[in-house]
Design a protein around this nucleic acid. Structure first.
Lengths: 188, 188
DNA sequence: GCCAAGTGTGAGTGGTTGACCACACAAGGA
DNA sequence: TCCTTGTGTGGTCAACCACTCACACTTGGC
């Protein structure tokens, strides 16, 4: 017979997905080295020991989270590109930029990208995931928009500028230099 | 009588400067949370205990290093702007970009900026230094180049793109997406 | 030579971290 | 009912971290 609640315990796979989702918020604040596995466990509502049942070690946990974020970003761009299909490269890129702005309105997605970049410097496994992530992203943006190399490059340059603005919590500051940096960058 | 070597011990001020200089290399790899004060001490050739005589705590040590890096970057841009004085905004900005490319050819300067950005997210003291640093940088670039808001913005956007390229150690990879991202970015 | 001020370190301290393991409990088929 | 398989945790541990302190050595003025 089927019980009322489908299950009392989750399957390991379900738990892994929960951890992946909630760990974004945990790692977003202090990145790879500054975030403890206990914090990740608390965010997922499980014990710290169980984190190590689901992931072999901290590095693979982090790389899985980063990979998951890249998937989310790509999915968001795909939706935007689908809606703007058939338009000029400029319009498609603008739609993608807008989708990105919406996606990261809670900032955590973007902060993971920033922290992944920082960790990539000295952690080869993270570097590989970041490379793969941007490789697919760049090729997807190029293909879906049909933009030139220059347009695609500028698309990502603006994305990186977003990281800077968010990491400085620029919306707390009102000054000419901030307005210059964030000109034309939508903020939801 | 005057001894052969002017001094056997350094003054505290000299030591502080040594630490500031050498700590750039130490923090460049793993950033604020991933770098231990022991590593900083080793890079400076002093004991870990003495680091704490020269700086009250790790946070103020790191912010001092970040501040020092901003000073170096600004000085480099100033030299470039002085040489290109009187030219059009485009030429001055190009000279500055080239100077920046030369300055960070060893990558450590840039990596400190990246790690400072990452730490700024959750460390208010670091955030303040980063804000101040970019505030002066943006205003200086605007003033010295006479460029429009858009030109200045693009100048910094390209700088951020540099951070991404360096953090991924992109020069190890040869692929279309890498060439798209790093098109026109000088590499010494 | 003496002494006060400054430079520098070895040897810790308390607290935290990533990782591990024995064990308890739930599920569900035989 | 029993028993295998899988879910989940408390308790622990060695290693490590930021930070401290007592103490030794140098310097330079007298």
């Amino acid at each position: 017979m089927k019980s009322e609640r489908p299950r009392q315990l989750s399957t390991a796979e379900e738990r892994r997905e929960t951890v992946l989702r909630t760990a974004i918020g945990a790692f977003a604040a202090r990145g790879y080295w500054g975030t403890t596995t206990t914090e990740v466990a608390k965010a997922a509502g499980i014990s710290q020991a169980y984190v190590y049942r689901l992931f072999p070690n901290k590095e693979l946990l982090f790389t899985a989270v980063v990979e998951h974020c890249f998937v989310l970003v790509r999915a968001s761009l795909e939706r935007a590109a689908a809606e703007a299909k058939g338009s000029s490269a400029e319009v498609v890129l603008e739609a993608m930029g807008d989708a990105y702005a919406r996606l990261i309105s809670d900032n955590d997605l973007m902060l993971i990208q920033l922290h992944a970049q920082a960790a990539a410097v000295s952690e080869p496994a993270v570097r590989e995931v970041v490379r793969q992530g941007y490789a697919r992203l760049v090729e997807y943006v190029r293909g879906a928009s049909g933009g030139t190399d220059g347009e695609v490059q500028e698309f990502f340059a603006r994305g990186m500028l977003c990281h800077l603005i968010v990491s400085m919590v620029a919306d707390e500051v009102d000054a000419p230099w901030i307005r210059t940096l964030s000109a034309g960058i939508t903020h939801y």
